[in-house]
């Protein structure tokens, strides 16, 4: 069953078209991630689903109901902002209960619901603090609490982890995944970080310049990217992509091979290059080769690969792992 349906959604600011004819279906209970470089329109698209931004044309359906013209608060959505947007003058308790208080619900009902929500997010001991007195992760959880208490049909997340440091970010990724499993709610999540997309999503939507490039599960996108853009965006280090004569020799417009799908050897292989730079990460070694035609080849070898800067070595693509585009 579908939860969110976008039909031919467009958005222009003056003569500038930032969202170009987007059609998308998000299933109930899915964790759907919009990913793309900055300026691709992912945040605008999310804000159009939330109702904070109006669409120039098209239709938005949430849970079977056409909400294209509905107010943000009438769409059955909740949103977690990049800055968390916690009201600085209110306590955690008042922040979480703000929506219910606006709706004029009885105080006892608000109190019970706030307590319950806070309990589930381990915020119970912080209820009387102001946001200023909280850590980054705690603020994040308050923002999530404010969303949960609305009991929304769809959760919207706008780059919620980008203000956190690396360690906390990976912890929050797990917490969000757990939360999704526990609530079973539909979540739409915007990020520019492909690691977040790969680790959290059931469904990834790759956006580029206001268009959908590809929709699919993380491994589908990894294994079968439909375009050089998707191929280059998903996976790290980036896929090696070649055009021109190299690609022509492979009978395609663009030829691609992931660094982890190149076998390095000192004795022989398809391409011979000179080692320019080596990154030893412990678990594996990333080697940058200079090649007269390909210019640069990036390869990833497992473990501590023995090689020195200036060495001449060979790189060999694994069969069946090569990508040929148009």
């Amino acid at each position: 069953m579908t939860s969110v349906v976008l039909k031919d959604i467009r958005k222009s600011f003056g003569s500038l078209e930032v969202i170009k004819a987007i059609d998308l279906e998000v299933e109930k209970g899915e964790f759907c991630v919009f990913v793309g470089p900055s300026g691709c329109g992912k945040s605008t698209l999310l804000r159009m689903i939330s109702g904070l931004e109006t669409s120039t044309s098209g239709q938005i359906v949430i849970d079977g109901e056409d909400v294209t013209h509905a107010e943000p608060s009438k769409r059955g959505i909740a949103m977690v902002f990049q800055s968390y947007a916690l009201y600085p003058h209110l306590t955690v308790r008042e922040n979480i209960g703000f929506g219910l208080s606006l709706a004029g619900r009885p105080k006892s009902e608000i109190a019970t619901k706030v307590e319950k929500t806070a309990e589930s997010l381990q915020l119970a001991h912080l209820l009387d603090r102001k946001p200023k007195a909280l850590s980054g992760g705690q603020r994040q959880r308050v923002a999530i609490g404010r969303a949960i208490i609305r009991n929304p049909k769809v959760f919207l997340f706008d780059e919620p982890l980008s203000n956190l440091d690396a360690a906390l970010r990976s912890q929050m990724r797990m917490e969000l995944t757990d939360l999704h499993a526990k609530l079973g709610a539909t979540m739409i999540y915007v990020t520019h970080d492909q690691v977040e997309a790969m680790t959290m999503a059931n469904k990834i939507v790759v956006l580029n310049a206001g268009r959908i490039e590809q929709v699919g599960s993380p491994m589908e996108l990894y294994n079968n990217p439909v375009s050089p853009f998707v191929a280059g965006f998903i996976g790290s280090p980036k896929m090696n992509l070649y055009e021109g004569e190299v690609a022509a020799a492979e009978r395609c417009g663009t030829y691609g091979i992931r660094p982890e799908h190149l076998i390095l050897s000192k004795s022989g292989g398809k391409w011979r290059g000179q080692v320019r730079h080596i990154e030893r990460l412990g678990a594996d070694t990333v080697v940058y080769l200079d090649h007269p035609e390909l210019k640069q080849i990036v390869a990833r070898a497992p473990g501590d690969f023995e090689v020195a800067s200036g060495d001449e070595i060979y790189a060999m693509p694994m069969s069946g792992k090569e990508h040929r585009f148009g």
Binding site: G51, T54, S55, T56, S57, T68, H69, E71
Partner: peptide, 8 residues
């Protein structure tokens, strides 16, 4: 064209 009430 969609018009929505501005919060301002």
């Amino acid at each position: 064209m969609v018009t929505q009430k501005s919060p301002y």
